[in-house]
Design a protein around this nucleic acid. Structure first.
Length: 225
DNA sequence: AATTGCGGGGATT
DNA sequence: AATCCCCGCAATT
């Protein structure tokens, strides 16, 4: 990484391939922005407009939690992995169970040990941790300037994607009604689910986002000067 | 009740 | 000093 750190001559670099790192003291201005990428993976960087709502929220398809890096200018988040069935069962539709870990520690602890949502499975939910960045969770970095929101990711996720945030929220509002507590060692099967809740994977999302079309961007290009 | 960001503080290298 | 983690707090949704 690096470049353009020349203490004296920081202004001038070749107009082309202007490189930047989230930690640079001088971050370049950009004239073009990237479309928001929900499922970033690998070492990548994007620049979003300050009006971009997802970017403003520092959101991601991956379940990311804030981690303190003691730097007020750069927000750091690390991946929480994915909630899986301990028996790795397969749902009727052929899909696997990979739910979204709650960001809140307390809520996530409650998720673990709950019965697998597959009613014909006796497994329990457990967190598969992310170790995609040198044995540590994948990290995301966010940095705001007057003109743009800079994003940088480090590491390659070594686990399946969790369900999308919108899907997790939808289920939460369905399932979280009334009595909540179901303890791991308990017999209270709260399979009150009116309908099978597999199809997490594309019922509604097609309307407002196209998850796959934008993923084929080979890399960020043509946006910097 | 869960999300998000902040920040103190501990452990390690 | 840097990096990583855990925890509690507060504002927000």
């Amino acid at each position: 990484m690096v470049v353009l750190e020349a203490p004296t001559e920081s202004k001038m670099a070749p107009p082309h391939h202007f490189d930047w790192d989230i930690n640079d003291t001088n971050i370049p201005k950009v004239s073009e922005f990237d479309p928001f990428v929900e499922w970033t993976d690998g070492h990548c960087r994007f620049v979003y407009p300050v009006e971009q709502e997802e970017a403003k929220r520092h959101s991601s398809g991956w379940a990311m939690r804030n981690t303190n890096n003691h730097n007020v200018n750069i927000l750091k988040k690390s991946c929480l992995g994915v909630l899986m069935c301990s028996l790795r069962c397969t749902l009727d539709g052929g899909a696997k169970v990979h739910l979204r870990p709650a960001i809140c520690d307390k809520a996530r602890k409650k998720q673990q040990g709950r019965p697998c949502p597959n009613k014909s499975c006796s497994g329990r939910l457990e967190v598969m941790q992310c170790r995609g960045h040198c044995g540590y969770p994948v990290t995301h970095f966010w940095r705001h300037t007057e003109h743009a929101i800079f994003f940088q990711a480090k590491g390659v996720h070594d686990h399946p994607r969790p369900e999308a945030k919108s899907t997790a929220e939808a289920r939460r509002s369905l399932t979280g009604r009334g009595l909540t507590s179901t303890l791991p060692g308990q017999t209270s099967h709260r399979s009150l689910h009116p309908r099978p809740l597999h199809h997490h994977h594309n019922p509604r999302i097609s309307g407002n986002k196209r998850p796959f079309l934008l993923l084929s961007l080979p890399r960020p290009l043509g946006r910097v000067f």
